[in-house]
């Protein structure tokens, strides 16, 4: 029996949010990253960007306040905070590619120990591929963090030596938040910043393809 409990999706998101300081401009990908917006501590101003042309994205609207003209990149209805702005797609991706975003948090299928990211296609002959803004975000944001489950549903590690799925970007991921741990990508490979309570480095290594070591400062 294990002595630890995995974080659920909301808890992964909350753990990410803890590390986002006030004043950062942040883009959140689809999936677990989207939940990060709801878990930023009260009173901390973080400005969320949506690649379809919004800065200052707020929480989901109450049902009676739904505005059909306000959606985020995941096509979910959102609100706009006071101070928010609209802009067109070329400007939106100028913000992304031009290194103006402090952070983007993306979901992933796999991340390699060299920081390579695979999150857009499961094979090179995907039946209906879709890339969206993933490649722009993964190359353009000043920091790229990943939020995902540590292993697949069938238990296959997602933190790997080398990505098997088609790459989104090479060498750009700096940190990974999973249901089991927070792992930095360093020039020497994966370095564990923290793990869920009760988990040992040996437990985590059993669920990780590439070698792990503890980070020197965490």
């Amino acid at each position: 029996m294990s002595n630890w409990t995995a974080r659920d999706r909301a808890e992964i998101a909350r753990r990410v949010a803890q590390d986002i300081p006030e004043g950062w401009y942040v883009n959140l990908g689809i999936g677990i990253p989207t939940l990060v917006a709801d878990t930023v501590p009260a009173g901390r101003e973080v400005i969320f960007h949506a690649e379809n042309g919004l800065l200052g994205v707020g929480p989901a609207p109450a049902p009676d306040e739904l505005d059909r003209w306000l959606i985020n990149a995941g096509k979910q209805h959102v609100t706009l905070l006071p101070g928010g702005a609209f802009f067109h797609h070329a400007d939106s991706f100028a913000m992304i590619r031009g290194r103006h975003l402090d952070l983007c948090v993306l979901g992933a299928y796999e991340v390699s120990s060299g920081g390579d990211l695979a999150n857009w296609a499961r094979s090179s002959t995907d039946t209906a591929p879709a890339v969206g803004g993933a490649m722009d975000l993964a190359i353009g944001a000043r920091r790229v963090w990943v939020a995902m489950e540590h292993v697949t549903r069938s238990g296959v590690p997602r933190l790997v030596e080398s990505c098997g799925y088609p790459l989104t970007s090479a060498g750009r991921v700096k940190r990974i938040y999973t249901d089991l741990a927070v792992v930095d990508v360093t020039p020497e490979g994966f370095a564990v910043r923290d793990m869920v309570e009760g988990m040992t480095l040996a437990d985590l290594q059993d669920r990780t393809e590439a070698p792990l070591r503890m980070a020197e400062e965490a």
Partner: peptide
């Protein structure tokens, strides 16, 4: 879209979103 593309009845050029915007 998925039916037509799956049946080979539609050519698709997939372009990253920011590249699509910048090309225009």
């Amino acid at each position: 879209f998925e039916e037509l593309y799956g049946a080979g009845k539609l050519e698709l050029e997939l372009v990253p979103q920011g590249t699509l915007a910048e090309r225009m």
